[in-house]
């Protein structure tokens, strides 16, 4: 596991271009809901005199006045824009993952980066869409079942006089859901790695095989994922420490510094995610060596339509 983590981190370190590309693309996408927010906030805040407290503290009262008495008329757009960005991000996820895997599989050709990335994106796109759909549907069904079952099991705890039990009941439900959801998400990760390596065309089969793989190697599979979550938590804590202890973003310099710090955090997130995929690839290669060298000819079932490329 440690070797895989080291390998993943090295891979992410080598593919700096990849990390920066993903950061830039999603940063750009974020402007869809951020731009109207800026218009909205500007319309309310820019004309306010210096006596405004907006810069000293994050003021709930002011925020709610901004939404209640919106002059720009774009406040209503914010939610729609945010939803749109999230949907695009989800679709884009299936797209870029092909590129990520393709690039990670070619550490020796950094000059051909853009070429390999776009080839991977296009090459795997439809297969990854199908994989994502299969994973998404199974995840939704199983999470629903787990939530209902665990919720019913812990319900009596919420009715006792032992107050911590109420919260414990909620916590148990949430943790069970998280474990179940993580199972299907890890399955998705390994299924994509399997498809990229073996060139499989049967997505359902690939997904089931990967779920089996995660179940057989639960400890390292979850372990790698948890390491990644822990790294994110660490970054989040660092940011919160900065946010609480830094001077209020009241001068242009302080705002720029804050922006800079935020972007470092986002880049760190992307880096960690690429690192995780690298680590998972490495682990998968160790634990489940390819039966036949890629590209393999795999049985095409009737349910699987070949990609239109």
């Amino acid at each position: 596991m440690l070797a895989s983590i080291g390998h993943g981190l090295r891979a992410a370190g080598t593919q700096r271009k990849l990390v920066l590309l993903l950061w830039a693309w999603y940063g750009l996408l974020s402007f869809v809901p951020v731009f109207p927010a800026f218009v909205w906030l500007s319309s309310g805040l820019n004309m306010r005199p210096a006596s405004a407290t907006a810069l000293q503290r994050f003021d709930f009262g002011l925020l709610s006045e901004l939404s209640n008495y919106d002059q720009s008329g774009v406040f209503g757009l914010l939610v729609v824009a945010a939803m749109a960005a999230m949907v695009v991000a989800l679709v884009s996820s299936t797209f870029v993952m092909g590129g990520v895997l393709e690039v990670l599989g070619s550490e020796d050709e950094p000059r051909m980066f853009m070429h390999r990335f776009s080839r991977g994106c296009g090459h795997f796109f439809w297969r990854f869409v199908r994989l994502a759909l299969i994973a998404g549907i199974s995840l939704a069904i199983v999470v629903g079942i787990v939530a209902a079952a665990v919720g019913a099991m812990t319900a009596p705890m919420g009715k006792t006089e032992w107050e911590p039990g109420w919260y414990l009941a909620g916590l148990i439900t949430v943790v069970s859901i998280a474990i179940a959801a993580a199972y299907f998400l890890l399955g998705l990760d390994y299924a994509r790695i399997r498809v990229a390596r073996d060139g499989s065309r049967g997505m359902f089969k690939a997904y089931v095989a990967s779920l089996g793989f995660v179940a057989r190697h639960a400890l390292p599979a979850y372990g790698l994922g948890l390491t990644f979550v822990a790294a994110l938590a660490g970054v989040a804590l660092l940011y919160l420490a900065y946010e609480t202890n830094s001077p209020a973003a009241a001068t242009t310099g302080a705002i720029v510094l804050l922006l800079l710090f935020q972007q470092i955090v986002v880049i760190a997130r992307v880096f960690a995610r690429v690192g995780l995929i690298g680590a998972e690839r490495h682990y998968f290669a160790l634990a489940s060596p390819a039966a036949t060298p890629a590209p393999a000819v795999v049985t095409v079932t009737t349910a699987d339509v070949p990609p239109p490329v």
């Binding site: 809901p33 927010a37 500007s42 805040l45 820019n46 907006a54 996820s93 242009t252 935020q262």
Partner: peptide, 28 residues
Amino acid sequence: EDDLKPSASWTSRWLFLVQNIVTTLGLF
């Protein structure tokens, strides 16, 4: 004359929040 600082300061936090969500979803 407009003062952009308050909205820039608040927007940067919103950007950060959105970026975190979009990046998470975009690398699922």
